[in-house]
């Protein structure tokens, strides 16, 4: 049976997809400094060690600051663009939207080096804010992709009905538009946060003296004795990502259901 073979293949493929994530907690709790089988025993030592590394803590704080700012700024920019694209017709719309979405298909290293060149030419010093500049650039297209479906599922006659019943454009935005696209906004915030928190290349080039979490991780990967701690940290990060994503997916679906639309599946 065709479907049967496909199903076996599908499950095998999922195993391939999840292989690294399944291994992560196994080694995080393994009582050995070498990351290899056979396993030596159970320990939570690597997790408790996480609490004793100040450099890690400042990297986490730095990354959180960058991720939150990036999520907020790119969502605001995303709302503007998605709303403009869904609601108004203007000459050159396709070209402008194409340019805004371009970072989605540009190799990240090119975004990183081109920004670096300009910042250095202008004599600006690198820091958290330069990483934010770069992250907003690559997160905005994702925000727009998510918010587009929210704004496009929004029946224009909803807003017209509100004007017709006496509300002004601003109060209509507050009472009708915002509540209906809110799930999309929340899911855009979460996605932006997740991407920024995980992004390495741009941060690697644009971060100053204060590394972000991925840049810190990168520096640790060179030292074999630090690997178990990285595994413990990775386990926590994966768990966090899954929670955030499940939340984002929940809000995305609720948004589609609210606006009375049909689920087309997926974030991308």
């Amino acid at each position: 049976m065709k479907g049967g073979w496909l199903k076996i293949y599908a499950i095998g493929y999922l195993l391939f997809l999840y292989a690294p994530i399944i291994l992560l907690p196994i080694f995080a709790f393994n009582d050995a400094t070498i990351i290899a089988f056979p396993l030596k025993g159970f320990t939570t030592q690597w997790f408790s060690e996480l609490a004793t590394i100040p450099a890690l803590h400042s990297a986490v704080l730095n990354s959180l600051l960058i991720a939150v700012t990036t999520a907020v700024v790119s969502t605001v920019l995303g709302v503007c663009a998605a709303r403009a694209a869904a609601r108004y017709q203007f000459p050159g719309k396709k070209g402008i939207m194409g340019a805004i979405m371009l970072p989605l298909v540009l190799p990240e290293i090119i975004v990183a080096v081109s920004l670096l060149v300009v910042l250095l030419q202008l004599g600006l010093s690198l820091g958290a804010w330069t990483v934010i500049l770069g992250h907003v650039l690559i997160c905005t297209p994702f925000s727009i992709a998510i918010l587009n479906s929210a704004f496009q599922n929004l029946d224009m006659s909803m807003e017209e009905a509100s004007y017709d019943l006496g509300e002004t454009p601003w109060s209509t935005f507050r009472l009708i538009t915002l509540p209906l696209v809110m799930p999309g906004i929340i899911s855009s915030l979460l996605i932006g946060f997740t991407i920024s928190l995980d992004e390495f290349i741009i941060a690697f080039f644009l971060t100053g003296a204060e590394p972000t979490l991925p840049v810190y991780l990168w520096s640790q990967l060179r030292f074999p004795q630090k690997i178990p701690v990285v595994m413990a940290l990775g386990t926590i990060l994966v768990l966090l990502s899954i929670i955030l994503l499940t939340m984002a997916e929940y809000f995305r679906r609720r948004g589609i259901a609210r606006a009375g639309g049909k689920d087309t599946g997926g974030f991308l």
Binding site: Y88, F90, A99, L102, V111, L137, T140
Partner: peptide
């Protein structure tokens, strides 16, 4: 005009930083 006005922050950002 409204479309341009609304899309301009995002478009300007992409212009300046990309």
């Amino acid at each position: 005009a409204r479309g341009y006005l609304l899309v301009s922050p995002t478009a300007l950002y992409a212009l300046l930083l990309l």
